[in-house]
Structure formats: structure tokens, C-alpha cells
Design a binder for these strands. Structure first.
Lengths: 132, 132
DNA sequence: CTGGATCCGACCGGATACTG
DNA sequence: CAGTATCCGGTCGGATCCAG
């Protein structure tokens, strides 16, 4: 036990350490667009086209969808397939690693939706007790 | 089935909808400092002081620790206890809801650390295939 | 010790226009 | 259709100083 910071051990990576690359990865994984795009691909079950994903993730801009998909692909979480057709057709799907992650992120998502009401109530309570 | 967007059903809240409050909540839950502070409190097991948390979460500024704890408290995820002493002593601990969430976020954290190596390899592979 | 207040640079991210 | 390029306002977040 030579670790000075906390966190689940089991490997050399520790996001509680400022310099550890896992911190940046964790930051990316928690990003809203990352979570929603992965969730959308997970729900779809089949390879999705750029436009199809943008329809599932309401309000995402082409810029953010592009950059998010690029990072996901670069990190090995999403597989990109492009076909030589006109008009061009490109599809995205989760890699095995991406599917694994999707299951976990889905839990976070489920927590958010199932506890939203409680959170709303907690805010009211907090605001009432701290109002100016 | 009147939903037009995707996502796990089960409630009226849907983060895939741009206007749904659960989207903002989800964004907050995935925030790096949120994840690490919750994880630190979870690891500690006992109520932690402001300074103790800052030591566990390497590199967090007092500004971010303060604002993160405030939001967590306001959302009912963290319980704050202050004692009338000099010097002042304040402790923070996870609420039952917070502990529930912590277990899930810990999984995300574990995914990040356990797959960091694979992700690093995927990046090398991607960069090699896309270098200018 | 536990913060609040302020300054300010960095960058996130939307809107828009354009291309193969 | 599937992006790329650019502009630019808003916000995030670190550093610093101050207070109860």
C-alpha cells in the first residue's frame, strides 16, 4: 500500500492523481455528449448513420457530434464504416469495449431519470432553507 | 409508446430530449469533480472535512471543491454538518441517495482505469493510421 | 480551517457558411 | 449525406486575496 491518494486500486492508473491519464479519460467518459451518443448507439442496436444519431440526440450540433464520434473512434469505443457510394454513407456502431461501457453509462442515465424527482425536491428544500 | 427520442423509458424524464431537466442533471453527474468528490467520500466511509477531501482529490482548487460540494448538497447527494467550534469544523458525507450513485460512478471509474491500457493502444493505432 | 469574492485566460460549444 | 472551417460569446476553472 504505497498509494497516497484514494480510489479503487487494481491497476497503475488512478484518476485521483492529477497527472494520471485516466483522469482525462474519465472526464471524457462523463461528458454529456459522450454519454448520450454512446447511449443512442446502444439503444439503436444496429449501425447508425450520422444523421440518425443526431436525431436521437436532440439538440446536438454537427460540430459536437463530429468531434465526439472522432474521439470515441480514436479511443476504440466506436467503429466507423464508410461505403463508397453516392451520396456517401457512413455508419457508426459500438465496439465490444464500447458496449461494455454503454451498460455502465446506462446505469448512470437511469439513476438520473429515476431520481430526478427526488433531486428536484431536494433543491426546493435547499433553496427554501437558504433563501436570502 | 409516444416517445419520439430514444433512451431508457420508465419515467417522464428523458435526457435525450434537449429540454428535459435530467439532461442537466446527467451533465452534472458526469462532471469530473463531481465524480471524484463523490468517490473520495465513498472511499473514506466516514464524514470528511473540507481539507481532507481536497487531499484525496489531487489538484482540486478550493473554488471547485466549494462549488461542487454546494451543488451536491443542494441536490441531496451530500450531507453537510458544521460544528460550532473554533477553529470551525465542517464535515461532508454521502446521503443514502449519494451512496447509491457512488456505487454506479465507481463502476465508471473502474472501467476507465481497467481499460486505460487498451484505450492508449487504440489511440496509437488510430494515430498511426491517420497521421498526416 | 472553511470558505467567499474577484480577476481573467482558456476552451467549450453553438451558429453559420461552405465542400466532396 | 457527412462532414470541415471559422467566428465568437459564454462559461469553466485556476490563481489570488480576503474574511469569519
Amino acid at each position: 500500500m504505497t498509494e497516497t491518494t484514494s480510489g479503487a486500486a487494481g491497476g497503475p492508473f488512478n484518476p485521483y492523481s492529477r497527472a494520471c491519464p485516466s483522469r482525462r479519460l474519465l472526464k471524457f467518459l462523463g461528458d454529456l455528449w459522450t454519454v448520450l451518443v454512446i447511449g443512442a448507439l446502444y439503444d439503436a442496436g444496429t449501425p447508425q448513420r450520422f444523421t440518425e444519431i443526431s436525431l436521437r440526440v436532440d439538440g446536438i450540433s454537427t460540430k459536437m457530434l463530429t468531434s465526439t464520434l472522432r474521439r470515441l473512434e480514436r479511443n476504440g469505443l466506436v467503429l466507423r464504416q464508410q461505403y463508397a457510394e453516392t451520396p456517401p454513407r457512413v455508419t457508426y456502431e459500438l465496439s465490444p469495449a464500447g458496449q461494455d461501457l454503454a451498460g455502465i453509462l446506462r446505469e448512470v442515465e437511469a439513476w438520473a431519470t429515476s431520481h430526478m424527482q427526488d433531486v428536484l425536491a431536494a433543491r426546493d428544500s435547499y433553496d427554501a432553507a437558504h433563501e436570502a
